[in-house]
Computed example of a mutant assay.
Amino acid sequence: MTVEQSKATTKQAKTPLRVLHLTFNMGIGGTEQVIRQLVQGMATESVESEILCIDGHIGPIGESLQQSGVPVHKLARKQGFDWALIKAIRKHLREGRFDVVHCHQYTPWMYGWLAALPTSAKVVFTEHGRFYPDRYRYKAMLINPVMALLTPSIVAISEATKDALVKYEFIPRHKIQVIYNGIAPLTRNETEAQKVREELGIPPEAFVVGTVSRLDPVKNQQMMLRAFKMFSEKRPDAYLLMVGDGPDKAMLTALADELGISDITRFTGFINKPEHHLCSMDVFLLSSHTEGTSMTLLEAMSLGLPAIATWVGGNPEIVVDGKTGMLTETECADSFARAISDLASNRQQYCDLSKASVKEFTRKFTQERMISSYIKSYEGSGQRNTS
């Protein structure tokens, strides 16, 4: 090998892997937070990332990434099956010389897979969660096994999500890898947490339970309010903190009035960086009908905030019942209230769960662990685009 050839080989070896994240939009949600973690975390790992939104708008997380210098693009998907969208994605893949197209959720996978067929870009598909209730789509029985066969890397964010892909999407189990979501741990700041309580009119000595979530039917927050009503009757210093916004806000506000707990319930609306609100809580609540890997649950764990969650989806893979938190049935407000009461009245158990949740987070759910797993997936499925 000549010196020139050696230099060329070295230069090629150092060429960054180029990844296009294909998603609906970069609004507010767990999928969008995962994409943000991947893009920002991989910036120092010789991975160049761009984002392409197919629903015609970018959203606040995307706009924030744009301001930090990350290229975020958008296309407007038409109703029905949009053949023009396939061509537009394909054009973007070729012009951007992308090695990998990372498709987040099923519809982006379908469009990304078709767009990538005649290009050298390799496809990675991540299923971030399932609709509630889940259902069979018999067209999937014919299409998905073919797509799966020609998709080098298929990722589920929990074993429960993997099981759903096998059962409802007819994807062979051996094709699916589980990569748990991961985050950078939050830092507790007691001074800022007390400021949050003051601003919300919550006494410093109050016992605060709460959640950070979309106010959405799938999150089952009606049950949370009813359970809190039961708990508050036994605990006069109790407050409920609801951080988030969504289609159920008006209904939940009205329900709090109906239950007579509106004076001890705080609806904050959307908070861009809710870590201080989390720190102001004593217990984190997650009452969902279904979950993949809840990012806010991971944030709570990283702070050592004991969690009470419903026994659905990926929650039992995150919360070890009785060891790192507590799990209850989905539709049982009585058991949810009883779990809150048990945790509030047993200081030793509270401290034990707090310490164990931090250890479990560090063991399984760090940003570094998730990024490392995805980079291996990219390198295994990706082929450097030198054309």
Score class of each variant (00 low, 15 high):
333 A>T: 06
106 Y>F: 00
347 R>E: 13
254 A>W: 11
193 A>H: 03
294 S>H: 00
351 C>T: 12
241 L>V: 03
336 F>E: 05
127 E>G: 10
235 R>W: 09
175 K>F: 10
273 K>E: 15
99 D>W: 12
294 S>Q: 05
226 R>K: 13
156 A>L: 03
45 E>T: 05
38 L>C: 15
123 V>G: 06
385 N>L: 09
191 T>W: 07
295 M>G: 02
240 L>V: 05
275 E>Y: 15
210 G>V: 11
332 C>V: 03
123 V>H: 05
369 R>V: 13
203 P>K: 00
99 D>F: 08
55 D>M: 07
162 K>L: 09
284 F>I: 12
8 A>G: 10
278 L>I: 11
289 H>W: 00
377 S>P: 04
347 R>C: 03
65 L>K: 03
46 S>A: 15
175 K>I: 14
156 A>H: 04
112 G>N: 01
21 H>Q: 10
166 V>A: 06
65 L>V: 11
205 E>K: 15
32 E>I: 00
164 A>M: 07
348 Q>G: 14
293 T>Q: 07
290 T>H: 01
21 H>F: 10
171 I>S: 09
95 E>R: 08
318 I>A: 05
66 Q>G: 14
106 Y>T: 07
140 A>T: 11
146 V>I: 10
291 E>G: 02
137 R>A: 06
89 I>V: 01
292 G>T: 04
134 D>K: 11
204 P>T: 03
357 S>C: 08
363 R>Y: 01
175 K>M: 12
101 V>R: 07
338 R>T: 13
313 G>N: 05
92 H>S: 10
195 K>Q: 12
20 L>N: 09
329 E>N: 13
181 N>F: 08
38 L>D: 02
93 L>M: 10
60 P>Y: 15
336 F>T: 07
106 Y>A: 01
153 S>Y: 13
362 T>S: 15
10 T>H: 10
33 Q>N: 12
269 G>R: 13
261 I>W: 13
17 L>I: 08
366 T>M: 05
27 G>Q: 06
359 K>N: 14
96 G>E: 14
269 G>Y: 03
159 E>C: 11
327 L>W: 01
217 P>C: 03
358 V>E: 11
169 E>C: 09
85 L>I: 13
38 L>V: 14
309 A>E: 06
268 T>E: 01
332 C>S: 12
286 L>S: 02
115 A>V: 07
79 Q>E: 02
79 Q>P: 11
